[in-house]
Design a binder for these strands. Structure first.
Length: 299
DNA sequence: CCGCGTCAAGTTCAT
DNA sequence: ATGAACTTGACGCGG
C-alpha cells in the first residue's frame, strides 16, 4: 500500500502557524503562540483524516524559538494535555507525523557551537514528538550536513556526533540524501555506521545521483532494509523540479504525469511518500484524483 | 490599514 | 561578492 502526505502547511485552512521576532519574544508571548499553534494542529489533522491523508509533517516552528535560550517556557508541561490529546488522535486515526529540522541543523560542522545548537534543535524536535506521546515510527528527518572540503572526514564527524546523541533522539532519527553533498549511497553508508533508517529522496537523487546502475525501485529496496519494525513503514520523499527555476528548486505543484510514471514502478510496495511542493495538500488531492480515475480502489 | 523589508541559526553553488 | 536554494511565510514597521 502506498500512502501520500504533505509538509507543514494546509493552504486552504486559514490557520497560519504563528511566530514572532526575537526582539519581541517573551515567555508569555512564546507560550501564547505555542498554544495557538498546537491548537491549530487539530483542525489540520481532522481535515487530513477526513480526506484519507495519513501522512503529515509538523512544522519546526510549532513552538517559537523552540531551541533558543530565550525560550524558557516549559511548554511540554504547560501544553501537556493538548499535546497528549493530539497524540491520541494521531494514534487512533492511524496517522503518521514527522518533523524535519531546518538547514541550521548540522551535526557534522567543524564548529562546536554549530553542532551544539544542532543537538539542541534535535532535542526540541524530540520533545515535541515525545509530548505527543506518539511512538518511534514518528520520525525526525535530517541531512548529513556539509562537506567542508573533505567528505570522508566530514562523514566520519557526522557518525561520531550521531553516536553521542541520546537514545530518545536516535530512536526517532532518520537520514536523507541531499541534492548537493551526500548521495543516497553516502547516506546508506552512514546508516550502516549508526543504525538509523534512510529516507530516500527521489528528487535529490536526480540532482545528486549514485548507484546509477540501479533503478530507483531497487535503491528504495536498499533504503527499505535500513528500516526495522519499530521504525514503522518505509518512507521516501518525492518532488519535481520547478520548471525554469534554479536546479534543485521544488515545483509549485506535483507533476501528475511524472508521478504516475514513478508510481507504476513502485505501486506494489509498502511506502509512505512525503511530497515536497509549494501547494501542499492540493498536490496530494490531485494525485488521489488521478489514481482513482485510473483504478477506482487506489490509494 | 496595507505594503513590503526583514527575520535565530549554516553551507553550497550559480551568477 | 551576492543571492538563492534548502521542509514552511509571517511579522511588524512605516507610511
Amino acid at each position: 500500500m502506498i500512502r501520500i502526505g504533505y509538509a507543514c502547511i494546509n493552504t486552504k485552512l486559514d490557520a497560519p502557524n504563528r511566530t514572532c521576532r526575537l526582539k519581541n519574544a517573551t515567555p508569555e508571548k512564546i507560550l501564547e503562540l505555542a498554544a495557538a499553534n498546537v491548537e491549530a494542529l487539530q483542525p489540520i489533522l481532522d481535515w487530513n483524516a477526513a480526506q484519507g491523508i495519513e501522512l503529515f509533517r509538523i512544522t519546526s516552528d510549532l513552538i517559537p524559538f523552540g531551541s533558543h535560550p530565550i525560550n524558557t517556557v516549559p511548554w511540554w508541561r504547560i501544553l501537556e494535555s493538548q499535546l497528549a490529546r493530539l497524540g491520541d488522535f494521531i494514534a487512533r486515526k492511524g496517522l503518521r507525523v514527522s518533523m524535519h529540522p531546518g538547514q541550521f541543523t548540522i551535526l557534522n560542522s567543524p564548529r562546536r557551537e554549530v553542532v551544539a545548537n544542532s543537538v539542541k534543535e534535535l532535542e526540541y524536535h524530540t520533545a515535541v514528538l515525545d509530548a505527543l506521546g506518539v511512538d518511534n515510527s514518528h520520525k525526525i528527518v535530517i541531512h548529513l550536513g556539509g562537506v567542508y572540503g573533505d567528505k570522508a572526514e566530514s562523514l566520519s564527524r557526522f557518525v561520531e556526533n550521531c553516536k553521542r546523541l541520546n537514545s530518545r533522539i536516535r530512536a526517532r532519527l532518520v537520514i536523507e540524501n541531499d541534492e548537493r553533498c551526500y548521495t543516497v549511497d553516502d547516506v546508506l553508508g552512514a546508516s550502516r555506521a549508526i543504525g538509523v533508517p534512510v529516507v530516500f529522496d527521489v528528487f535529490h537523487h536526480v540532482w545528486n545521483p549514485a548507484l546509477e546502475a540501479l533503478p530507483v525501485r531497487l535503491i528504495i529496496g536498499l533504503a527499505a532494509k535500513t528500516w526495522r519494525k519499530r521504525d514503522g513503514r518505509v518512507k521516501i520523499h518525492y518532488s519535481n523540479q520547478w520548471p525554469g527555476g534554479p536546479a534543485g528548486a521544488h515545483s509549485k505543484s506535483i507533476n501528475v504525469g511524472k508521478f504516475l510514471r514513478f508510481y507504476d514502478t513502485i505501486h506494489d510496495l509498502d511506502l509512505d511518500i512525503m511530497l515536497e511542493v509549494k501547494d501542499k495538500e492540493q498536490s496530494v488531492l490531485k494525485l488521489f484524483r488521478a489514481l482513482n480515475a485510473r483504478q477506482p480502489r487506489a490509494a
